[in-house]
Protein backbone atom coordinates (compact mmCIF):
# COMPACT_ATOMS: atom_id res chain seq x y z
CA UNK A 1 0.00 0.00 0.00
CA UNK A 2 2.60 2.46 1.18
CA UNK A 3 4.95 1.41 -1.61
CA UNK A 4 2.22 1.94 -4.15
CA UNK A 5 1.54 5.37 -2.79
CA UNK A 6 5.20 6.29 -2.99
CA UNK A 7 5.35 4.99 -6.53
CA UNK A 8 2.38 7.03 -7.62
CA UNK A 9 3.86 10.05 -5.92
CA UNK A 10 7.08 9.56 -7.86
CA UNK A 11 5.10 9.05 -11.03
CA UNK A 12 3.15 12.21 -10.40
CA UNK A 13 6.33 14.12 -9.75
CA UNK A 14 7.81 12.79 -12.97
CA UNK A 15 4.70 13.72 -14.90
CA UNK A 16 4.72 17.22 -13.44
CA UNK A 17 8.39 17.59 -14.33
CA UNK A 18 7.61 16.46 -17.87
CA UNK A 19 4.82 18.99 -18.14
CA UNK A 20 6.97 21.82 -16.80
CA UNK A 21 9.74 21.05 -19.27
CA UNK A 22 7.24 20.89 -22.14
CA UNK A 23 5.91 24.31 -21.21
CA UNK A 24 9.45 25.64 -20.91
CA UNK A 25 10.44 24.33 -24.34
CA UNK A 26 7.27 25.76 -25.81
CA UNK A 27 8.02 29.19 -24.37
CA UNK A 28 11.57 29.21 -25.75
CA UNK A 29 10.33 28.16 -29.17
CA UNK A 30 7.70 30.87 -28.94
CA UNK A 31 10.39 33.45 -28.21
CA UNK A 32 12.37 32.26 -31.23
CA UNK A 33 9.35 32.29 -33.51
CA UNK A 34 7.56 35.49 -32.40
CA UNK A 35 9.52 37.75 -34.79
CA UNK A 36 8.69 35.45 -37.70
CA UNK A 37 5.03 35.20 -36.80
CA UNK A 38 4.89 38.99 -36.49
CA UNK A 39 6.54 39.32 -39.88
CA UNK A 40 3.97 37.02 -41.50
CA UNK A 41 1.08 38.89 -39.85
CA UNK A 42 2.47 42.27 -40.88
CA UNK A 43 2.84 41.09 -44.46
CA UNK A 44 -0.96 40.92 -44.60
CA UNK A 45 -1.59 44.06 -42.58
CA UNK A 46 -3.46 46.83 -44.37
CA UNK A 47 -1.40 49.58 -42.76
CA UNK A 48 1.89 50.94 -43.92
CA UNK A 49 3.63 51.57 -40.61
CA UNK A 50 2.46 48.42 -38.89
CA UNK A 51 1.62 50.07 -35.60
CA UNK A 52 -1.61 48.13 -35.29
CA UNK A 53 -3.71 45.63 -37.19
CA UNK A 54 -5.87 47.37 -39.73
CA UNK A 55 -7.41 44.55 -41.70
CA UNK A 56 -6.32 41.88 -44.14
CA UNK A 57 -4.76 42.73 -47.47
CA UNK A 58 -2.62 41.10 -50.13
CA UNK A 59 -1.65 44.51 -51.48
CA UNK A 60 2.02 44.13 -50.51
CA UNK A 61 2.32 40.84 -52.33
CA UNK A 62 0.85 42.39 -55.46
CA UNK A 63 3.12 45.42 -55.19
CA UNK A 64 6.09 43.16 -54.66
CA UNK A 65 5.75 41.67 -58.12
CA UNK A 66 4.43 44.66 -60.02
CA UNK A 67 5.96 47.72 -58.48
CA UNK A 68 9.08 46.96 -56.53
CA UNK A 69 12.79 46.54 -57.14
CA UNK A 70 13.13 44.18 -54.18
CA UNK A 71 12.84 41.13 -56.42
CA UNK A 72 15.84 42.43 -58.36
CA UNK A 73 17.93 42.63 -55.16
CA UNK A 74 16.81 39.12 -54.29
CA UNK A 75 18.02 38.08 -57.75
CA UNK A 76 21.49 39.46 -56.99
CA UNK A 77 21.44 37.66 -53.63
CA UNK A 78 20.59 34.42 -55.38
CA UNK A 79 23.31 34.79 -58.02
CA UNK A 80 25.92 35.52 -55.34
CA UNK A 81 24.71 32.65 -53.13
CA UNK A 82 24.64 30.11 -55.95
CA UNK A 83 28.07 31.10 -57.27
CA UNK A 84 29.63 31.18 -53.78
CA UNK A 85 28.05 27.82 -52.97
CA UNK A 86 29.43 26.19 -56.13
CA UNK A 87 32.92 27.56 -55.51
CA UNK A 88 32.99 26.65 -51.84
CA UNK A 89 31.61 23.15 -52.41
CA UNK A 90 34.23 22.40 -55.09
CA UNK A 91 37.20 23.88 -53.24
CA UNK A 92 35.97 22.70 -49.85
CA UNK A 93 35.32 19.11 -50.88
CA UNK A 94 38.56 18.67 -52.79
CA UNK A 95 40.43 20.52 -50.04
CA UNK A 96 38.91 18.31 -47.34
CA UNK A 97 40.13 15.25 -49.27
CA UNK A 98 43.63 16.70 -49.38
CA UNK A 99 43.58 17.64 -45.70
CA UNK A 100 42.34 14.22 -44.56
CA UNK A 101 44.31 11.98 -46.91
CA UNK A 102 47.70 13.63 -47.27
CA UNK A 103 50.47 15.02 -45.15
CA UNK A 104 52.19 18.19 -46.29
CA UNK A 105 54.24 20.98 -44.83
CA UNK A 106 51.63 23.68 -44.27
CA UNK A 107 48.87 21.26 -43.31
CA UNK A 108 48.42 22.36 -39.71
CA UNK A 109 48.60 26.04 -40.69
CA UNK A 110 45.91 25.60 -43.33
CA UNK A 111 43.68 23.47 -41.08
CA UNK A 112 43.89 26.00 -38.29
CA UNK A 113 43.31 28.93 -40.63
CA UNK A 114 39.94 27.39 -41.50
CA UNK A 115 38.70 28.29 -38.05
CA UNK A 116 39.54 31.96 -38.47
CA UNK A 117 36.52 32.88 -40.63
CA UNK A 118 34.29 30.82 -38.32
CA UNK A 119 35.32 32.30 -34.99
CA UNK A 120 36.64 35.78 -35.75
CA UNK A 121 33.85 38.38 -35.67
CA UNK A 122 32.49 38.91 -39.15
CA UNK A 123 33.24 42.62 -39.06
CA UNK A 124 36.97 41.80 -38.91
CA UNK A 125 36.70 39.53 -41.93
CA UNK A 126 34.68 42.20 -43.71
CA UNK A 127 37.26 44.94 -43.27
CA UNK A 128 40.15 42.61 -44.11
CA UNK A 129 38.51 41.63 -47.40
CA UNK A 130 37.66 45.26 -48.16
CA UNK A 131 41.30 46.24 -47.65
CA UNK A 132 42.48 43.32 -49.79
CA UNK A 133 40.30 44.39 -52.71
CA UNK A 134 41.20 48.07 -52.35
CA UNK A 135 44.92 47.33 -52.29
CA UNK A 136 44.66 44.98 -55.26
CA UNK A 137 42.71 47.79 -56.97
CA UNK A 138 39.91 45.37 -57.63
CA UNK A 139 36.59 47.17 -58.21
CA UNK A 140 33.90 46.24 -55.70
CA UNK A 141 30.95 44.40 -57.20
CA UNK A 142 29.54 41.00 -57.95
CA UNK A 143 32.98 39.32 -58.18
CA UNK A 144 34.20 40.64 -54.84
CA UNK A 145 30.90 39.61 -53.26
CA UNK A 146 31.18 36.07 -54.59
CA UNK A 147 34.84 35.75 -53.55
CA UNK A 148 34.07 37.05 -50.05
CA UNK A 149 31.06 34.81 -49.56
CA UNK A 150 33.04 31.79 -50.74
CA UNK A 151 35.72 32.70 -48.22
CA UNK A 152 33.40 32.37 -45.23
CA UNK A 153 31.54 29.35 -46.68
CA UNK A 154 34.58 27.20 -47.55
CA UNK A 155 35.55 26.44 -43.92
CA UNK A 156 32.06 25.17 -43.10
CA UNK A 157 32.10 22.90 -46.15
CA UNK A 158 35.56 21.57 -45.25
CA UNK A 159 34.53 20.80 -41.68
CA UNK A 160 31.39 18.99 -42.78
CA UNK A 161 33.24 17.08 -45.52
CA UNK A 162 36.25 16.24 -43.36
CA UNK A 163 34.03 14.30 -40.99
CA UNK A 164 32.39 12.41 -43.84
CA UNK A 165 35.70 11.60 -45.56
CA UNK A 166 37.34 10.42 -42.34
CA UNK A 167 34.42 8.06 -41.81
CA UNK A 168 34.64 6.65 -45.34
CA UNK A 169 35.67 3.08 -46.07
CA UNK A 170 39.00 3.30 -47.92
CA UNK A 171 38.76 -0.27 -49.20
CA UNK A 172 36.07 0.69 -51.73
CA UNK A 173 38.46 3.11 -53.41
CA UNK A 174 41.28 0.59 -53.24
CA UNK A 175 39.01 -1.95 -54.91
CA UNK A 176 38.33 0.54 -57.70
CA UNK A 177 42.06 1.12 -58.22
CA UNK A 178 42.76 -2.62 -58.14
CA UNK A 179 40.17 -3.09 -60.85
CA UNK A 180 42.15 -0.74 -63.08
CA UNK A 181 40.57 2.67 -62.57
CA UNK A 182 43.01 5.54 -62.18
CA UNK A 183 42.82 8.14 -59.42
CA UNK A 184 40.66 10.52 -61.43
CA UNK A 185 38.12 7.91 -62.49
CA UNK A 186 38.03 6.55 -58.94
CA UNK A 187 37.36 10.04 -57.64
CA UNK A 188 34.47 10.71 -60.02
CA UNK A 189 32.90 7.24 -60.03
CA UNK A 190 33.49 6.09 -56.46
CA UNK A 191 34.54 8.82 -54.01
CA UNK A 192 32.26 11.59 -55.25
CA UNK A 193 29.02 9.57 -55.30
CA UNK A 194 29.72 8.41 -51.75
CA UNK A 195 30.17 12.02 -50.65
CA UNK A 196 26.95 13.34 -52.21
CA UNK A 197 24.97 13.53 -48.92
CA UNK A 198 27.79 15.50 -47.27
CA UNK A 199 28.14 17.74 -50.31
CA UNK A 200 24.43 18.47 -50.16
CA UNK A 201 24.50 19.51 -46.54
CA UNK A 202 27.63 21.58 -47.18
CA UNK A 203 25.92 23.28 -50.10
CA UNK A 204 22.80 23.90 -48.05
CA UNK A 205 24.88 25.41 -45.27
CA UNK A 206 26.84 27.65 -47.67
CA UNK A 207 23.73 28.82 -49.43
CA UNK A 208 21.93 29.79 -46.24
CA UNK A 209 25.01 31.53 -44.83
CA UNK A 210 25.49 33.47 -48.03
CA UNK A 211 21.89 34.50 -48.59
CA UNK A 212 21.55 35.92 -45.07
CA UNK A 213 24.91 37.65 -44.82
CA UNK A 214 24.78 41.35 -43.99
CA UNK A 215 27.99 42.23 -42.22
CA UNK A 216 30.60 41.17 -44.76
CA UNK A 217 28.45 42.04 -47.78
CA UNK A 218 27.98 45.55 -46.50
CA UNK A 219 31.73 46.14 -46.87
CA UNK A 220 32.40 44.51 -50.22
CA UNK A 221 29.13 45.05 -52.10
CA UNK A 222 30.00 48.23 -53.95
CA UNK A 223 27.28 50.19 -55.72
CA UNK A 224 26.22 47.56 -58.27
CA UNK A 225 26.00 44.36 -56.26
CA UNK A 226 23.53 45.26 -53.55
CA UNK A 227 22.05 42.08 -52.17
CA UNK A 228 18.69 41.94 -50.45
CA UNK A 229 20.05 42.06 -46.87
CA UNK A 230 22.35 44.99 -47.71
CA UNK A 231 19.39 46.79 -49.25
CA UNK A 232 17.20 46.06 -46.23
CA UNK A 233 19.89 47.42 -43.90
CA UNK A 234 20.09 50.62 -45.91
CA UNK A 235 16.29 50.94 -45.84
CA UNK A 236 16.09 50.67 -42.06
CA UNK A 237 16.75 54.34 -41.41
CA UNK A 238 13.87 55.46 -43.59
CA UNK A 239 11.62 52.60 -42.50
CA UNK A 240 11.11 49.28 -44.22
CA UNK A 241 8.37 49.06 -46.78
CA UNK A 242 5.75 46.37 -46.07
CA UNK A 243 6.82 44.60 -49.27
CA UNK A 244 9.90 43.44 -47.37
CA UNK A 245 7.66 41.50 -44.97
CA UNK A 246 5.83 39.97 -47.92
CA UNK A 247 9.05 39.01 -49.68
CA UNK A 248 10.66 37.41 -46.62
CA UNK A 249 7.45 35.55 -45.81
CA UNK A 250 7.63 34.04 -49.28
CA UNK A 251 11.32 33.23 -48.70
CA UNK A 252 10.50 31.37 -45.48
CA UNK A 253 7.91 29.41 -47.40
CA UNK A 254 10.44 28.50 -50.10
CA UNK A 255 12.94 27.57 -47.41
CA UNK A 256 10.50 25.23 -45.68
CA UNK A 257 9.71 23.55 -48.99
CA UNK A 258 13.46 23.29 -49.63
CA UNK A 259 14.03 21.61 -46.27
CA UNK A 260 11.25 19.12 -46.94
CA UNK A 261 12.65 18.34 -50.40
CA UNK A 262 16.16 18.01 -48.97
CA UNK A 263 14.93 15.56 -46.33
CA UNK A 264 13.03 13.54 -48.93
CA UNK A 265 16.07 13.40 -51.24
CA UNK A 266 18.38 12.38 -48.39
CA UNK A 267 15.97 9.62 -47.40
CA UNK A 268 15.72 8.50 -51.03
CA UNK A 269 19.51 8.45 -51.44
CA UNK A 270 19.87 6.40 -48.28
CA UNK A 271 17.26 3.95 -49.50
CA UNK A 272 18.88 3.70 -52.92
CA UNK A 273 22.31 3.17 -51.41
CA UNK A 274 20.89 0.36 -49.28
CA UNK A 275 19.18 -1.37 -52.21
CA UNK A 276 22.33 -0.90 -54.29
CA UNK A 277 24.40 -2.66 -51.68
CA UNK A 278 21.79 -5.39 -51.30
CA UNK A 279 21.75 -6.02 -55.05
CA UNK A 280 25.38 -7.12 -54.86
CA UNK A 281 24.60 -10.03 -52.61
Amino acid sequence: MAGEKRLSKRLRKKRLWGRVSNVYAFLVYLFIYVPIIVMVIYSFNDQKNNYYWNGFTTEWYEKLFTNSDLVGYLGISLIVAVAATIISVIIGTIGALGLVRFEFKLKSVISNSLYIPIVVPEVVLGISLLMLFEIANFPLGMTTMILSHATFCIPFVVIIMRGRIAGMDLSIEEASMDLGANRLITFFRVTLPLLIPGIMSGAFMSFTLSIDDVIISNFVAGPYATTLPVKILSMVKTGLSPEVNALTTLMVLVLLVGILINNAVQALLKKRALTNIKSYF
Binding site: I91, G92, I94, G95, L97, G98, L99, R101, F102, F104, L106, K107, I110, S113, L114, I116, P117, V124, L125, I127, S128, L129, M131, L132, I135, L147, S148, A150, T151, I154, V158
Partner: peptide, 20 residues
Protein backbone atom coordinates in the same frame (compact mmCIF):
# COMPACT_ATOMS: atom_id res chain seq x y z
CA UNK B 1 43.56 18.57 -53.66
CA UNK B 2 45.10 20.69 -50.92
CA UNK B 3 46.55 23.27 -53.31
CA UNK B 4 43.45 25.34 -54.16
CA UNK B 5 42.23 25.58 -50.60
CA UNK B 6 45.69 26.50 -49.32
CA UNK B 7 46.04 29.28 -51.87
CA UNK B 8 42.53 30.51 -51.11
CA UNK B 9 43.07 30.62 -47.35
CA UNK B 10 46.43 32.36 -47.74
CA UNK B 11 45.14 35.04 -50.13
CA UNK B 12 41.72 35.72 -48.62
CA UNK B 13 42.26 35.04 -44.92
CA UNK B 14 45.86 35.04 -43.77
CA UNK B 15 47.39 37.85 -45.84
CA UNK B 16 44.53 40.29 -45.16
CA UNK B 17 44.74 39.60 -41.42
CA UNK B 18 48.50 40.15 -41.45
CA UNK B 19 47.85 43.38 -43.32
CA UNK B 20 45.42 44.48 -40.59
Amino acid sequence: TAGPISIWMIIFVMLPLLYI
